[in-house]
């Protein structure tokens, strides 16, 4: 009786074990099976939204289903490793931003950036400085004056070390010549909440998470750290216009593992750019306050290198670079 039960169990286990053994055959006509876009953050975030919108367009353009995989954990490093270690056949690509640059220096287990091949640059996400309404501080000059008289009076909400709003909170006050008291929150949504409930008075978030509150007047944007004004905030001057040379931004780009055959990589580049420029994606991107700047592979690689040069000194000064990864 026992043996029969065990045999039955064994039988079903064998069947189940055999299920994933579907051989995948390579062919030259790319793509001939679904393309997977890896998102290193949980479903519902900014990158996830970009991937799902883009995937929707890409599947019609390339004529193949596009699957979104949220491979999350370890500050995005698990997902980046997933991309770097994937077979370089073009079927696994991913979305990345500034976080991956920081992690590459902070975490010895995070993949180094030279394991990645940029495929297309999607958008800039310029830094900005926001302040709660009702504090009597509506302009950058008033903010600087208030901060110089008492630096501890206004607290700033931002990401933990390495996140984009942390980088903004390093760059912006340094250029304004003020000391900023930084309070970390795990992510943009909790930072917005803290700003609205008044736990912090200022934040250095990018524009998308605060656009609605800025329009509603519950907070003021004191400046945007880009060369041109933000398209969704045409009345807010840039820092440059106000006399401070601050240009700092996060970015969103599509990458793949190093070594994708050139023909495949070129086809991905063209299709991705077509998807980014499609009406559907453009309209959705505008609604969520993204600043589109579609660029091809080569320019994306230049941008990535420039970001690396911006972030590394900041991390080094803050003592966040892992000893093994310090540059000499």
């Amino acid at each position: 009786m026992i043996r029969r039960k065990l045999l039955t169990t064994g039988f079903y286990l064998t069947i189940l074990a055999a299920l994933p053994l579907q051989a995948a055959f390579a062919d030259d006509a790319f793509p001939e099976k679904p393309i997977h876009i890896t998102v290193v953050w949980p479903a519902g975030g900014g990158h996830d939204l970009v991937a799902r919108l883009l995937g929707n367009e890409l599947s019609t353009i390339m004529g193949t289903p596009v699957v979104i995989d949220n491979v999350t954990g370890a500050g995005g490093s698990t997902g980046m490793r997933h991309i770097v270690n994937a077979a370089p056949d073009g079927y696994t690509i991913g979305v990345m931003g500034l976080h991956a640059v920081s992690q590459a220096y902070m975490n010895t287990n995070a993949p180094e950036l030279d394991g990645l091949d940029p495929l297309a640059y999607i958008s800039d996400e310029p830094g900005a400085l926001q302040i709660r309404a009702g504090l009597g501080i509506d302009t950058l000059e008033e903010y600087i004056a208030a901060m110089q008289s008492d630096p501890m009076d206004l607290m700033n909400g931002n990401d933990p070390q390495g996140g984009n709003s942390f980088v903004f909170a390093e760059v912006i006050p340094a250029a304004l010549g003020v000391e900023m008291m930084k309070l970390p929150y795990p992510g943009h949504a909790p930072t917005v909440t803290a700003l609205l409930t008044g736990e912090v008075q200022t934040a250095t978030l990018p524009v998308p998470p605060i656009i609605e509150h800025a329009n509603a007047g519950t907070l003021h944007v004191l400046g945007v750290a880009s060369e041109d004004r933000h398209p969704q905030l045409p009345d807010v001057p840039t820092f440059r216009e106000q006399g401070y040379d601050i240009v700092v931004n996060d970015f969103v780009m599509m990458v793949g593992p190093k070594g994708i055959p050139d023909a495949v990589s070129a086809k991905l580049e063209t299709s991705l750019l077509e998807a980014i420029n499609s009406d559907g994606f453009r309209a959705a991107a505008e609604r969520s306050a993204m600043v589109l700047r579609p660029l091809g592979r080569a320019e994306a690689a230049t941008e990535l290198a420039a970001q690396e040069e911006l972030v590394y000194p900041l991390l080094e000064t803050a003592g966040l670079v892992a000893t093994e990864l310090l540059r000499n």
């Binding site: 500050g75 698990t78 933990p160 970390p184």
Partner: peptide
């Protein structure tokens, strides 16, 4: 895993598996 406030590693022994934290 990674500390939510400082992003410092805790009890991870610098291994990728523990860096992801215990979901």
């Amino acid at each position: 895993g990674f500390d939510a406030l400082s992003d410092a590693q805790r009890m991870t022994m610098n291994t990728p598996m523990l860096q992801s934290g215990l979901n």
